[in-house]
């Protein structure tokens, strides 16, 4: 995947698209966009940095996984087998990008914060029970040659999940939800090893960098048209990120 930082306007439409496609619970951001500020007032600058899973070629999360629930497919996508994960969260501490999310709650509780309660009598009067809570049916299928349950979110409590590059869409030849939703086409998806793929042609001749490349993780998300965040960078606006604290 290539991400053009010159184009990104920080609208976070990709974040929304991801949540809808993958049915992620509240406070879980498989795709996230940093809205960053650098410098001191009045000489400040603002930048945006989308952060999906980096799908590293040398993934620390895969190395540390004690049960092989986290694995690297031959096409480069790093996935989690929700049927095998034991919830030790080692991948989460090993990942320098902070892209892993643990299912702290049961799936049915995980959405309670922001989903409409369909059995609410007030709501039923309006919808007549005709609009069920949305759940993407593709997420229940087993994916790939290896036929593992890797797509979507919140199948069980107590397992770790993260961005899958929308494996359920990629398997059908579609681009990930964030890519197709981006209104300014800042995200480009494709096979980096194929010189004629859209992402390879897009990257050709452009300055590029990878996040935390010095750690040797060799990410397959490549950024163009910008610079890595400096240590001075700080977030200026954050979405709701708490889970289960008091009455969240």
């Amino acid at each position: 995947m290539a991400i053009d930082l010159d184009r990104c306007q920080g609208c976070r439409a990709c974040v929304e698209a991801c949540k809808i496609e993958n049915n992620t619970p509240s406070a879980v951001f498989w795709m996230y966009v940093f809205r960053l500020e650098e410098g001191t007032y009045p000489d400040t600058s603002i930048s945006f940095l989308p952060r999906p899973c980096q799908h590293c070629h040398n993934p620390p999360c895969v190395k540390v996984c004690p049960t092989g629930a986290r694995f690297h497919r031959d096409d480069g996508i790093v996935l989690t087998d929700f049927d095998r994960c034991i919830g030790c969260r080692y991948c989460e501490v090993a990942c320098p990008y902070g892209v892993n999310f643990f299912n702290w709650r049961k799936p049915e509780q995980a959405f309670a914060d922001y989903q409409l309660k369909m059995d609410d009598p007030d709501l039923a009067a309006v919808t007549g029970g005709l609009i069920p809570p949305y759940r993407n049916p593709d997420l229940d299928e087993l994916q790939g040659d290896e036929q593992r349950r890797t797509a979507g979110s919140a199948h069980y409590k107590g397992v770790v999940e993260k961005c899958t590059f929308c494996v359920q869409r990629v398997e059908k030849g579609l681009d990930p939800a964030c890519v197709v939703t981006c209104p300014v086409e800042a995200l480009v998806f494709g096979d980096l090893e194929d010189p004629n793929s859209p992402v390879s042609t897009y990257l050709r001749g452009r300055d590029q960098f990878k996040l935390l490349e010095e750690l040797g993780t060799d990410p397959s998300v490549i950024y163009v048209g910008g610079t890595p965040p400096t240590p001075d960078a700080r977030e200026i606006e954050r979405p709701m990120t708490g889970v289960g604290n008091a009455n969240a």
């Binding site: 702290w104 107590g158 289960g244």
Partner: peptide
Amino acid sequence: TQGMVATGMRDLGTMQGATW
């Protein structure tokens, strides 16, 4: 019964917690 939400642990990154 509640899930591990009953602990003080939270995700690293956007949730700004400690997962261990």
